[in-house]
Write a protein that binds this DNA or RNA. Structure first.
Lengths: 191, 191
DNA sequence: TGAGGCATGTAATTTGTTACATGATTAT
DNA sequence: ATAATCATGTAACAAATTACATGCCTCA
């Protein structure tokens, strides 16, 4: 079980509803985990049934009510046990890299386009992450913050996200340029 | 279908058996895809049934015979169609980052240990990747190679792997140091 | 003689994904 | 009116993980 822990970790930052978590997993936590909305709703239900989180109905005006969740003591215990267990290797699955790997025998044009798209997405994410870092550390500079603040977990994981997005952007642009120049030189695309 | 394309792309580099592919997916292709051995055997069987690869029995002395696979024309067509299709976002699932995200409420000691382990794995992979780059480009320097060689796909995807591993190593070491210093300062671990 | 690499799977279970479904409110 | 955002799911299907199973050969 794995999504379970990602959800628990995300809920440490505050009370969130399923819907809010989908947003967080879409941009923030996408940092280190991906999950579809339906997975999150299902997992929250299971987590509550297992007593690892507690839900609380929040009545809203002007929009549908929502159910927000908090990690329980048992949930914290589950996380502690998880943290003490050896980490599984990073799971990565990248469509675009597969295409680049095979690009020699393929039409590079659509691949180049996708590289540009990915570069722009990475740049956008990077900006979001950097804003988040600023918000988290407030007045302090990074070094001071990391030395003195109580809650640095989200900051540290966000730093990983920044690194990933920065490198992604750079690699995509570089690769697109390389492929583009070769295309221009040979004049033609499909082999 | 996705693993399918990763396998086809890997098989463009040469004829491989299921067992060899497990090695490649463990270190080389781990670059952009992860798959368990059983998945690979199953996928190769399906790919052959669908006519996207052809298998060939290779009799060996001193070790069991193996079946090696080559991409067919139809397989290449499948890859071409795949490459022309919009890329799905990068899928990432990182246990260790989840732990770091939650570290404020947990015992940091095992997390720090895992960060060191991960850093060493990353360094090892980085070395493998850099050796691979050297082997691929032969005499040429990178720029010349990327301009002139026919087959640059594997080189380009390997560059992405290098970036990832380099950043992983740096982030792990930095994060471990930060957490370690805080532990030393507070003297105590679990909150 | 036992560990470890080579080589290939099956079967059961757990996860994840896709498509579908619903319904309210707000902004355009 | 219509689209977008908020909000939460179910059901069917596809994929991945885990555990198990087999058997040969080499090297220590």
């Amino acid at each position: 079980m794995a999504l379970r822990h990602a959800v628990l970790a995300a809920l440490l930052d505050g009370e969130y509803s399923g819907y809010q978590l989908t947003k967080i997993f879409d941009i923030g936590v996408s940092n280190f985990w991906y999950a579809a909305p339906q997975q999150l709703y299902a997992e929250l239900t299971k987590l509550e049934a297992d007593g690892l989180v507690t839900g609380r109905e929040v009545v809203q005006r002007g929009r549908p009510n929502k159910r927000v969740y908090t990690v329980t003591e048992a949930g914290l215990g589950e996380l502690a046990a998880f943290a003490a267990t050896p980490a599984k290797p990073l799971l990565i699955r990248d469509d675009l890299a597969v295409k680049v790997h095979a690009v020699d025998l393929l039409d590079p044009a659509p691949v180049i386009e996708q590289l540009h798209d990915r570069a722009m997405e990475a740049a956008a994410k990077l900006e979001v992450f950097e804003q988040l870092l600023l918000r988290l550390r407030g007045e302090l500079d990074e070094e001071t913050f990391l030395r003195q603040a109580e809650h640095i977990g989200p900051y540290l994981s966000c730093l990983a996200g920044c690194r990933l997005e920065r490198e992604t952007r750079a690699w995509c642009l570089e690769t697109a340029r390389t492929l583009g120049e070769r295309m221009a030189r040979t004049g033609r695309e499909t082999p």
